[in-house]
Each structure stands twice: as structure tokens, then as C-alpha cells.
Amino acid sequence: MFEYFYKYGSPRHFYDLSKMFVPWLGGICLILLIAGLTGGLFFAPPDYQQGESFRIIYVHVPSAWMSLFIYVVMASAGAISLVWKVKVADALARASAPLGASFTFLALATGSLWGKPMWGTWWVWDARLTSELILLFLYLGYMALQTAIDDRRTAARAGAILSLVGVVNIPIIHYSVEWWHTLHQGPTITKLDAPSIHPSMLVPLLIMAFAFMFYYAAVVLLRARYEILENERNSAWVYELTEQRKG
């Protein structure tokens, strides 16, 4: 098993795999995006309370979900690179940070655009909003740490520890709407009983969530591939790649 793991965990193989998978993942993402947007913008009926403004949900909620999901992936990859010193895991963690930060920013910004017409304010120090803002700072802190430390192995270790400590924020964000009854609404979909949302509204939301998932998979491979190239710039196989590109 470990032989297999090392073979496909090797930078060289990872590069080839990335080349192979990115177009497929990207293609699936595009199809899902078109389906989700059509469903969300055209077919879903307006909300009985919020009217058309609720359509922000189709970018807001998937972004927020991705911001948490990517953090967990980043911390897990960090843990793997910390324990087994797998270069590819470190590359995945590094590549995840800017994507996670982007989705966190989008969750906050689209939430703000939704909050203004519905709550009457762009921002409020609500538990959900504040903990999500802390998540953004965790991502930015991780990225700053990576640029500040020149030695790759030290940076990988420091980043992994930072991201693992930050994991404590993830359940806080998730349960914030239950622990503190402030302004942000409670969960609609991830409840144990049936979701309190009509299928015509729910299906496009789930499709958008899958689209974002495939987007992340495609782009994280693209970014991790670059991290690997940078790291291995002096190795023979990267040198061979330039031969192919010239020809």
C-alpha cells in the first residue's frame, strides 16, 4: 500500500495526474455551473419573504460551505505533511489557502450584499459573521507565513501547525447560529430533520455546491502543480518538461 502511496504521491506523478484531471474536473464544473445558475436564476420561484433577493443564496451558501471545507482539507493536508513529510500534501495545503481565502471573502461579501436589503445593514458583529471573518484572517495569516519563511520545510511545518490550531474555529462557525442567537439565520439544509426549503430552490443550490466542489478540485490541482514545479525547478523531470514545451 505504501509503495502505491509513494508512487502517486511523488511530485512527478502528481504533475502528470494534474495535467490529466484538471480539464475533466473543469469541464464538469462548467456544466454544473450552467445547470445550477439556470435553475437558481430562472426556475427557482422567488422567496415568499425575501422576494428575488434570496437568489444570492446560490453563490453565498456554496462559498461559505467551501470556505469551511477547504480549511479542513488544508489542515488535514498540513497534518499529513507534518507527520509523513509528503511534499504533495504540503503543495496541496499551500495551494488551498488562496482558494479558501477567496471563498471566505466571497461568503462575507455576498453575505453583506444580502444583509443590506434584508437586515438593513452591511455588517453586524454577529457570531456567524465574526467567526467567518476570523477564518479569513486564519487563511491570510497562513499565506503570510508561507511568504515570510524562505525554507520550504520550515514553512510547511509552521503552516501546518497554524492551520491545525485554527481548526477549532470550524465547529465554532458551524454551530455559531445555534450557540448564539444573533442575527444570522439558523441552518436550513444541514439539519437532522427534513430541510426547510422547497426542492425547486434546494436542487439548484446543491448543484451549485457541487460545481464549487469541482471548481476547487480543478484549481487546487492547478495551483499545487505550480507549487511542485517551483520546488522541483532544478530536477531533471522539470527540465525535460521545458524540452517538450519548446518542441
Binding site: E52, S53, L106, A109, L113, W114, V219, L222, R223, Y226
Partner: peptide, 30 residues
Amino acid sequence: MGGYAIYVWPAYVLTFIVLILNVILPLKRE
């Protein structure tokens, strides 16, 4: 958008700008 155009469309445009940038920049760097 039932009067919510100034909120709904910027949310979508912003999302797609960020998503597209995250694809273009790494490709350019590579």
C-alpha cells in the same frame, strides 16, 4: 430582480470575477 438588482447582480459578478482570477493567475504564473 424585483428591485434587488443592485444587490443580486454585484454578488454574482463578484463571485465570478474571483473564480476566474483564481484560474487565470496560476496559469499565467506557470
